[in-house]
């Protein structure tokens, strides 16, 4: 037996990805996660949802948490379990996430009136993933933990 204390369930498989905070690099996280999800047996439409949720979480981390400073990393942890995939996205938290913006439901009628038509990212993540939780990363940055269940 290994003398190292396992920090997680031995059946879990963890992939860690560290990306520069540069818009466009979220594609790397999307493709890595979809490659894993495909091998776990997720249906194509669930994988599309996963990709959209990850793109939103990673671009948020780049733009808000890390203020688009390319030298700051976004850390994506993909934890594959028997029946679910857990994705955690953490930034280096120069700017803490306003808790209010993690719960709202934007309305297109309002967006049409506003100059800023954005603000859909976190809402989309909530709509598309089975479980979503906003926390603080061990590094002190913002972290979003998203779970998608494998339905048989």
């Amino acid at each position: 037996m290994s003398d190292e204390t396992p920090q997680h369930d031995p059946l879990e498989k963890v992939i860690e990805l560290r990306l520069p905070s540069k818009l466009g690099y979220e594609r790397v996280a999307m493709d890595t996660a979809s490659s894993l999800a495909r091998r776990m047996g997720f249906a194509a439409d669930r994988i599309e949802s996963l990709k959209t949720a990850i793109s939103e979480a990673v671009t948020n981390a780049m733009e808000h948490g890390n203020q688009q400073d390319a030298a700051m990393k976004v850390v994506v942890l993909l934890t594959a379990r028997e029946d679910e995939l857990i994705v955690s996205v953490a930034d280096q938290g120069r700017k803490p996430l306003d808790q209010d913006c993690t719960t709202g439901s934007p309305k297109i009628e309002d967006a049409l009136e506003r100059d800023d038509k954005g603000g859909w990212g976190i809402w989309l993540i909530r709509e598309l993933m089975d479980e979503v939780e906003f926390t603080t990363a061990p590094s002190g940055g913002n972290q979003v933990r998203m779970v998608i269940h494998l339905e048989q």
């Binding site: 793109s55 671009t59 297109i108 967006a111 049409l112 038509k117 954005g118 859909w120 990212g121």
Partner: peptide, 19 residues
């Protein structure tokens, strides 16, 4: 195969103009 919320915001801008 990739449209994100920033892209959606652009399209909402187009809707505003169209209206």
């Amino acid at each position: 195969d990739y449209i994100n919320s920033a892209g959606i915001a652009i399209l909402i801008g187009i809707v505003t103009e169209v209206n």
